[in-house]
């Protein structure tokens, strides 16, 4: 019983020690809303650059910015809003100027087929509705607040989630009747939710900036990944996922 276990452990240690040896890597920190697109771009980049390993670290933009400021080894940073990128740039950690590569808008996610008949942002103020939004501390919550200010609609959410995926999950599982998320989130959820677009979303369009970081291990490789995102192939993937053009 003991011996196979020890052998397994040894095998695990060996493979982790050998794996990645001699390969060049690009570490990309990207906002979690970019999960699908950057996953596809990772594969394309690795196919175009044999021997290169792209490592994606996907999380909320503000958390990623904190990690970068604390010295996390990142080569490229793609943020879901300009303010977060500005924080990193102000700390002197960006190489050159950040470039906007996409935009994203809010939309309302509801159960498939919209059983509650929600048709506008103002409908969300209905107290009988179980509503979830992002917390105002994260970009999607800040954008929701902006729309509230612009429209004069006062939302009373039942929960303020720490990220947009959590909002989507609450709608997908049917716990919430409606959630305020990004257009791309509804697109990625496929049949599990229906999106209800609203005109006032224009009041809070999120810009997605990307930048090569000053402490990048391999600046030229990092630039090539950034160029892939900004180039035709990257833009096609982004448009397919529902992102707007910059």
């Amino acid at each position: 019983m003991r011996r196979p276990l020890a052998a397994c452990l040894a095998a695990v240690l060996l493979t982790t020690a050998c794996g990645g040896g001699g390969e060049r890597t690009v570490t990309v920190f990207a906002a979690s809303s970019l999960t699908g697109v950057f996953g596809a771009l990772e594969q394309r980049f690795e196919a175009d650059h044999p021997g290169v390993d792209v490592r994606l670290n996907l999380a909320g933009s503000t958390r990623l910015a904190q990690q970068i400021r604390e010295g996390a080894p990142a080569d490229v940073f793609a943020s879901a809003n300009a303010a977060t990128m500005a924080d990193v740039a102000d700390a002197g950690l960006v190489d050159g100027e950040p470039a906007t590569f996409a935009t994203n808008e809010l939309t309302i996610a509801v159960a498939p087929g919209n059983p509650r008949g929600i048709s506008s942002f103002a409908d969300l103020a209905d107290r009988g509705l179980t509503l979830v939004t992002c917390a105002p501390q994260v970009p999607c919550g800040a954008a929701t607040r902006e729309v509230e200010r612009a429209t004069g609609v006062d939302l009373r959410p039942d929960s303020e989630e720490p990220n947009v995926r959590a909002v989507l999950t609450k709608v997908e599982t049917g716990e919430a009747d409606a959630g305020v998320v990004y257009v791309t989130d509804v697109r990625s959820a496929g049949q599990r939710v229906t999106g209800v677009p609203f005109a006032e979303a224009r009041e809070a369009v999120n810009d997605y900036p990307i930048a090569v970081l000053r402490n990048a291990a391999d600046t030229s490789l990092a630039r090539r990944f950034r160029d892939l995102v900004l180039g035709a192939a990257g833009q096609r993937e982004l448009a397919e996922a529902g992102f707007g053009a910059p």
């Binding site: 909320g60 503000t62 979830v132 917390a135 501390q137 039942d158 929960s159 303020e160 720490p162 999950t169």
Partner: peptide, 27 residues
């Protein structure tokens, strides 16, 4: 807690949830 109860001040936002929330903007 955050998965099952959500996060709303006064109702479900306990200290650990408040910490996580604040860490987004004000470390």
């Amino acid at each position: 807690t955050i998965t099952f109860a959500g996060s709303l001040q006064d109702v479900t936002r306990t200290l650990p949830l408040a910490v996580y929330n604040q860490a987004e903007t004000d470390v």
